[in-house]
């Protein structure tokens, strides 16, 4: 059996979420790691790993190899395509030898919605209480926050491009809001 057939995020998205103003997709399989590093080690870790961990909470670095985000004073989140697993784990193994840190694989803990289109801001704001004007939430900003009752990580990769990462079991709940919003939009 191929890996594809084993892999099941347990979620489908209805047709209504692929409009012109708003397209919501489910991101395919990714690897995800939670990195906990002493803030005093960031420079050295960056040098040793080439990961380009941002220093500021809310900062991110979207490279072609991985997306690294700073979520807390000593907390980073790394997301990459599945084929990056071996490379990243090699880097992590090396870091573990030289630094006091914690690396935990949480690849399957999360599901990620990608939102794009002119209405993406509105769609995020139906459940997320943050001010998403570019002044307050510029492109590149990431943060843990909430979408109604679901904890999420919100990322902005473009003016009209957002990612919503949530724990697996919260995904249908969040999808439900998008569905109602899109239905509403279609009817209005």
């Amino acid at each position: 059996m191929s890996s594809d057939m084993k892999f099941d995020q347990g979620l489908t998205l209805p047709e209504i979420l692929s409009g012109n103003d708003l397209k919501i997709m489910l991101l395919p399989e990714k690897v995800r790691y939670s990195l906990r590093i002493k803030p005093s080690d960031i420079a050295a870790v960056n040098k040793a790993s080439g990961l380009k961990l941002p220093r500021k909470i809310g900062g991110s670095n979207l490279g072609k190899d991985q997306f690294v985000m700073c979520l807390g004073p000593d907390e980073w989140f790394v997301v990459a395509n599945v084929d990056a697993r071996d490379r990243l784990e090699k880097i992590f193994a090396k870091l573990e030898k030289s630094f006091t840190l914690s690396i935990t694989d949480v690849s399957h803990r999360n599901i990620c919605f990608g939102l794009m289109g002119a209405d993406a801001v509105k769609a995020v704001n139906i459940g997320c209480p943050l001010d998403l004007s570019l002044e307050h939430f510029p492109v590149g900003k990431v943060t843990r926050t909430v979408f109604e009752s679901a904890p999420i990580i919100l990322t902005r990769t473009g003016e009209d491009n957002f990612g919503i990462e949530c724990w697996r079991s919260f995904a249908p709940y969040i999808r439900g809001f998008f569905e109602r919003y899109a239905t509403d939009k279609a009817a209005a």
Partner: peptide, 18 residues
């Protein structure tokens, strides 16, 4: 608002629930 019926409260389900 949108928070009625199945969205009134989160119901978490496991991967094996289906």
């Amino acid at each position: 608002g949108y928070r009625t019926d199945d969205l009134f409260e989160v119901t978490r389900k496991t991967p094996i629930d289906p």
